[in-house]
Amino acid sequence: MPLVEVSGVTKVYRLGDIDVNALAGVSLVIEHGEFIAIMGPSGSGKSTFMNMLGCLDRPTSGSYLLDGVDVGRLSRDELAEIRNRKTGFVFQGFNLLPRTSALENVELPMVYAGAPTAERRGRAIGALRKVGLEGRENHHPNQLSGGQQQRVAVARAIVNEAPVIFADEPTGNLDTKTSAEIMELFARLNRESGITVILVTHEPDIAAYADRVIRFRDGVIASDERRERVS
């Protein structure tokens, strides 16, 4: 069963009296273990598509199966449950809870999954170790560098052992060196743990880490190419 199976998806926003076609019929299949970069100019619909893939949004029409589940028919709370168990998010602006330690930020998805305290703690420490943040468990976001904050976000994304990570311009706020480190981390997670990584970027050297690049233009897929990885 493919991880993602999208067919004929459209998304229409109403802005005042005007209907905006953010997605105008997108079909796509993503298998487990792929490393995908989604590119395209702003307004091309790539973020809308990403939000829909991440179950933050529902398509106006068409169907979207995530791991065999028809997400388009689910209620708000059922979507929340899917986000909790099947997806991890990494954002451009890190989106960590302020004034909350790294450990507790990583524990957050497990809190909503209803995991017992001891298990939460153990798994959160494990996830932080995986992203190379041992010893920083009790640091608050404002005590961490941008790269470190993004690592915490990655740890939060993988802690529930979700099969897929969605990353929306994960290196947009980082310098070149740190960007490379974060991309290495994604590549390692993809390679070693078999986690599917789907990221949105407009930087070609970031997209170069992926083994499949999908380009959006005007709400449709303009190109979809597979290639050898750089690293």
Partner: peptide
């Protein structure tokens, strides 16, 4: 608002 968004993104439900 953003905190609420983060919580929702990682799986908080309406009643949470």
């Amino acid at each position: 608002t953003r905190e609420i968004g983060i919580r929702m993104a990682v799986g908080a439900k309406t009643w949470d």
